[in-house]
Design a protein around this nucleic acid. Sequence first.
DNA 1: CAGGCCGTTGACAACGTTGTCTAACCGTTA
DNA 2: TAACGGTTAGACAACGTTGTCAACGGCCTG
Lengths: 350, 350
Amino acid sequence: MTTLSNRYQAEAAKQRPTMRDVAALAGVGIKTVSRVVNEEPGVSEAKTVRVLRAVEQLNYQLDMAAGSLRRTGRRTLSIGLLLPSVANPFSGEIHRAIEDALAARGLAMFAASLDDDPEREKALVAAFLRRRVDGLILTPIAKSQAHVIPEHSQDLPVVFIDREPNGIDADAVVSDNATGGARAAAHLLSHGHTRLAYLGDRTDIQTARERRRGFLEELARSGIAVSDVPAIENLHDEEAAHRATHELLASRNPPTAIFSSQNLVTFGAMRALKEAGASHKVALVGFDDFALADMMEPGITVIAQHPERIGKLAAERILARIDGDQSQPSTWVVPSELIVRGSGELPPSD
Amino acid sequence: MTTLSNRYQAEAAKQRPTMRDVAALAGVGIKTVSRVVNEEPGVSEAKTVRVLRAVEQLNYQLDMAAGSLRRTGRRTLSIGLLLPSVANPFSGEIHRAIEDALAARGLAMFAASLDDDPEREKALVAAFLRRRVDGLILTPIAKSQAHVIPEHSQDLPVVFIDREPNGIDADAVVSDNATGGARAAAHLLSHGHTRLAYLGDRTDIQTARERRRGFLEELARSGIAVSDVPAIENLHDEEAAHRATHELLASRNPPTAIFSSQNLVTFGAMRALKEAGASHKVALVGFDDFALADMMEPGITVIAQHPERIGKLAAERILARIDGDQSQPSTWVVPSELIVRGSGELPPSD
DNA sequence: CAGGCCGTTGACAACGTTGTCTAACCGTTA
DNA sequence: TAACGGTTAGACAACGTTGTCAACGGCCTG
């Protein structure tokens, strides 16, 4: 029975060849095949050639999973990446920068989207853990990352990106969100604005809170009564931001300058300003750069982040940890940068 | 010696727990643990509870790699995705759509960027094969995919996206590139243009050739002398397209309408038109939609592709193949759509 | 009360690889 | 010639899991 079904399989699907097959064809032991395939030294020229020829002939492909099961350290040469969404251009650039750094080491990347959902964060981390990734790079959203990282994985390298983690002591690579917010405030103030407004993302997102804090603190330092500054939050999509901007413009005492703390919010604000014919009247500074910002009318002044630097740094950190770096975890901050394009330099309209 | 080093390891790094550990703690056999963890039937309520408690207590995580090594069919529950670049928004949307469809089945995705480099295509396909992915979804760039897919992987589900493969008979999901190109031509012709130009991507990219073909064939059908239509190709980035557009506008007999066959090319053309003060004079239709196209002045008319539908279809195909669908491979075509926004409806300027 | 059946359970081998260890072989040297 | 060292080679166990199968106990049936 067993014999029959095995034979059937062998004939029907001609099983994928294993090292044993290669060894048989080359007339050597399987360990010799292993040595050749893994480019280990200590195999004679003659046998190396024979093995390689057999590999070629059978089209043999090493099974890394089987190998890493036995290998000391159990390296799978794969790492897990958890992003807000792979469809998000900012995430995409980080992803690419990480890939470039890790591919050079032969590491493959699992990628997944969290949608800023704490439940997904937990489920996807678990899924990657079950696949025994050598490291984890993630954008946290759950309130705490402590119960997400099982204690037994404490030796698993983890690097957080874009947002700092809570309840776990690990490396993080982030933008200088508060400083960037302050930079936006200072820029608008320097152009004479005194009636400003803040439009921001969900308050459970750490970066949104930081940007708001930096913005408002800078205003306070300059003597603006912060209680009078409209701060409309929890705008998670373009439509919400669009509505909020229209309401702001229609209010009794409309702002002469707006700081939008995230791309989709900036888009919503731009659209509302355009519809209201106020693109050239109300100043706008957005957090995070985007394609075609310079092609708008006026060009959109932004606090640009550097996703490629965030990704590169995160990759360097995870590689260092994988290589055994035991130093104290810490947070790396990638500076943001003001890019002047017109919308942020409009003077107060009255 | 061995005992010593084992004990050392056990104490220093407290090895990740295995089923054996869980079984010992719960006082059951390891097969019972396996059954509980994999939610197989045939385990009494009492033992199930004891096993789950032990799993909890040890923070046990199943090792999927070890499991798939033994499991019949060797499913790894992972699939490989090869895109032009994960940083490319079009690719990102496809990626996301695929992820959404596959995550529901517990499949994880390896993602990698090809950069339209045939060598990378080969290397990355091999890397995914070594990891024994259950399926491969890729955007081909090499001249032939035949030697990329080893014969022994013929039972490996493969779906091509965005471009059709050569030298291998497999499922593909693509946009109607030629029809889209023709649609652009017809649209511009219907607005009275007779002096049109084509700006296109590298000619080794199949979609670029198809878009060009569809565009020119439609012009020919309408009696335009195709030999007089400037077709500037091999524009792979924005800067090249920008230069090409300027040259076009400065030529003796400049076109009154431009068809740009790819996003970066469209951006370059837009920028050149703006600099030349011709945004409202020379009509422009781009292939592929992009964020903020409606916010430009004028809005940019495009032939929109549907990356989310391409991704969804590709995911459905790979799942069907994984589930054993043996039907003849074929190509699914996702229709493109003309989106009218202003730039494509400008009349001939003289 | 014997026999049979069913629901549970766990011992065991096997998946494809790599680490360990011993064997065989070669050429040197005493 | 015997002993030795260095190189090459392969037999074997083990990694953590799942498929197979036999054994157990309880219950029903005749």
